[in-house]
Simulated assay, not measured.
Amino acid sequence: MITSPLSSNLSSKQPAKLTAALCLLLTCALMPMATAAKEAEAAKQVTVLGRTWVVAPAAEAPGFYHATRLNVELLPERPPALLSARQAVRAFRHATGCSANLDTLYRDITGTYFASLICPRK
């Protein structure tokens, strides 16, 4: 049987290409799960004056954190009202241990507060 050098070369490269393609596919499939897990670890839920806030690093604005109030409790006998900006600043403090930089504090149309944080040196 006569084999050409070209056919023997192709057969030895096929498993390497298949393995590389499989590794790439597996990496791409697991990437969203790793990103979602990192986000879930970073988000923290805190309670300020009876209201629940979720504080996490902001993906839209690097270096900033966001605080979003969960408005699921529409109870008539709630604790007294306080400005939501003050609640957001307290939520930042409870969740991270850092204070919000008031010069960078802003709210978007959805009611989510964004701010850079000032953390004490240890």
Rank of each mutant, 00 (worst) to 15 (best):
M1C: 03
M1L: 09
I2N: 02
I2V: 09
I2A: 00
S4I: 01
S4R: 03
P5W: 01
P5R: 04
P5K: 01
L6I: 11
L6K: 06
S7V: 14
L10T: 01
L10D: 00
L10H: 01
S11K: 15
S12I: 12
S12F: 02
S12D: 07
Q14G: 00
T19C: 08
A20W: 04
A20R: 11
A20H: 09
C23E: 12
C23Q: 13
L25F: 08
L25N: 11
L25A: 15
L25M: 11
T27N: 07
C28M: 14
A29K: 05
A29E: 02
L30Q: 10
L30G: 05
L30P: 00
L30F: 14
P32K: 07
P32M: 03
M33C: 10
M33R: 08
A34E: 00
A34D: 01
A36T: 10
A36V: 08
A36K: 11
A37N: 08
K38F: 05
K38N: 06
A40R: 11
A43M: 06
K44P: 02
Q45P: 02
V46W: 13
T47D: 15
V48H: 09
T52F: 03
T52Y: 03
W53C: 02
W53P: 02
V55F: 14
V55K: 07
P57E: 09
A58C: 13
A59Y: 11
E60Y: 12
E60D: 13
A61P: 00
A61W: 12
A61N: 13
A61M: 14
P62Q: 15
F64E: 11
F64L: 11
Y65L: 12
Y65C: 08
Y65K: 00
Y65H: 13
A67T: 07
A67W: 03
R69S: 04
L70R: 10
L70V: 13
L70E: 06
L70T: 11
N71F: 14
L74W: 13
P76F: 03
E77G: 01
P79A: 09
P80S: 01
A81Q: 01
S84C: 00
S84L: 09
A85T: 05
A85Q: 06
R86Y: 03
R86E: 08
Q87W: 02
Q87V: 00
V89G: 01
R90C: 00
R90F: 14
R90V: 02
A91N: 03
A91Y: 06
H94E: 14
T96C: 10
T96P: 12
G97S: 10
G97N: 09
S99T: 14
S99F: 01
A100M: 06
N101Q: 13
N101Y: 05
N101W: 06
L102N: 07
L102Y: 04
L102T: 04
D103F: 01
D103A: 15
D103T: 02
T104D: 11
L105M: 14
L105K: 07
L105H: 10
Y106F: 15
Y106S: 12
R107N: 07
D108N: 13
I109H: 14
T112D: 10
A115I: 10
A115Q: 05
S116G: 13
S116D: 14
L117S: 09
L117G: 08
C119T: 13
C119R: 14
P120W: 09
R121Y: 04
R121W: 04
R121I: 15
K122T: 15
K122Y: 07
K122M: 06
